[in-house]
Amino acid sequence: MPKDTRDVAEVNTDPVEAATGKTAVLYRMALPDHLCPSGQKARWLLERQGYEVDDRLFRTRAEVDAFKAKHGVQTTPQVWIEGERVGGYTDLREKLTDWGPKATTYRPVLYLFAVAALTAVALSIGFLGAITWQTLGWFISVSMILLGMQKLRDVESFSTMFLNYDLLARRWVPYAYVYPFIETAAGILMTGMILTWLSAPAALFIATIGAVSVFKAVYIDKRELKCACVGGNSNVPLGFVSLTENLMMMGMAIVMLWLAV
């Protein structure tokens, strides 16, 4: 345990007075049956930002309740910096980094595509001994699987976001619920290069509708929306990435149909 960690019972200094300069005061739970993960992350973030942490641990529920009543807070951990209370871990993260709970970001989809690309490369080297045109096909199909799985995590949230812009879903709501299953199944079949007569038309159908829907919403109607591509409740903006995803799916489906003829 860090040497500057103390039990709350051992501390009587006011956090406002103690939190000066690069010294931060952190109150967090370390009960016999619960070591607060947000408290651990708060300490790690403070240290990463160059703060010395006056780490004050609650050892009993009574100490936690007394602290909440005294400071008028609902949760712990609580952090003080430069004589002011910042709040909990998410408040601290927002203050010390460029993170924001509602900020738009491409990170989730970029990470997903990176994993798909590495998987495609691994499959190519492992089964074909080299990177070939099949690598690109696997990249697209594995991306479809991963994107589909993100949607399947919470189909209800995905369908709500999807209905904001998809043209077919807005006319026939059940399409928003079956879309993740079609995308995932088509990706699996295309990765295994089986049942092309089924997977390729299915992928072409959903991708074409998706591309037209995204283009209309973003480039014609000029709407600023969140993309449902990585599931509901994401902060990925609808736009170029979403359109590119659908165009790649369309391209792969067309190539597979052409080769199957």
Rank of each mutant, 00 (worst) to 15 (best):
A211G: 06
F240H: 05
M250V: 03
L57P: 11
A66V: 07
V64N: 08
N235A: 05
L112K: 00
D65L: 13
D98W: 07
E17D: 14
K151R: 11
A114L: 13
I220Y: 12
R171F: 08
S242I: 02
M144H: 03
Y177K: 15
Y165L: 02
D91L: 03
T13P: 06
R107H: 11
L57E: 14
G72R: 05
L136K: 00
L163A: 13
K68A: 08
M193T: 11
V86L: 04
P101T: 04
R28V: 08
G129R: 07
L259I: 10
A42N: 08
E183H: 05
V142I: 15
A69D: 15
L31A: 05
D14S: 12
E224G: 00
K102V: 02
A260V: 03
A169H: 02
W172N: 12
F162R: 08
G83S: 10
A62C: 04
T20W: 06
E156P: 01
H71Y: 15
M1L: 09
V79Y: 04
G251L: 08
A260L: 13
W80Y: 11
A69Y: 06
D33F: 13
C36V: 07
A169T: 11
D166G: 02
G129N: 06
L225E: 02
I209C: 11
A217E: 03
I145K: 00
L204C: 10
V212S: 08
E47K: 14
R223T: 02
C36S: 11
Q49Y: 12
D65W: 10
G126N: 05
L118D: 01
A260M: 11
K151D: 01
Q134M: 09
F215R: 05
H34W: 14
V8A: 15
D154M: 05
C36E: 12
M252S: 08
A253W: 02
L31F: 13
D54R: 12
S124T: 06
M1I: 10
M1K: 12
I145C: 02
T208H: 04
L146A: 10
E52N: 12
L225C: 05
M149I: 04
I131V: 14
A207G: 07
E63H: 07
F113I: 11
G148S: 01
F158Y: 09
D98Q: 12
A185C: 13
D4P: 02
T196C: 04
G210R: 06
C227P: 04
S242W: 01
A30L: 15
M144W: 00
A253F: 03
T105W: 00
Y175S: 07
R61G: 14
R56A: 07
S38F: 15
L92W: 03
V236H: 00
R61P: 01
P37F: 03
K41G: 08
F58C: 13
T60S: 13
G100D: 09
V8R: 13
Q40D: 13
R171W: 11
P101M: 05
E84C: 10
M149T: 00
V173S: 12
I220N: 09
A103W: 00
F162W: 09
A116D: 09
T196S: 10
R6V: 14
P32C: 02
W138T: 01
A186R: 04
L31K: 09
E17I: 08
L31N: 08
Y175M: 04
F113L: 13
A185G: 09
G251Y: 02
L204G: 06
K3S: 15
A42E: 09
L163V: 04
H71N: 13
L189M: 14
I206R: 08
G187I: 04
E17P: 07
I81P: 00
T90A: 12
P32E: 15
P101A: 09
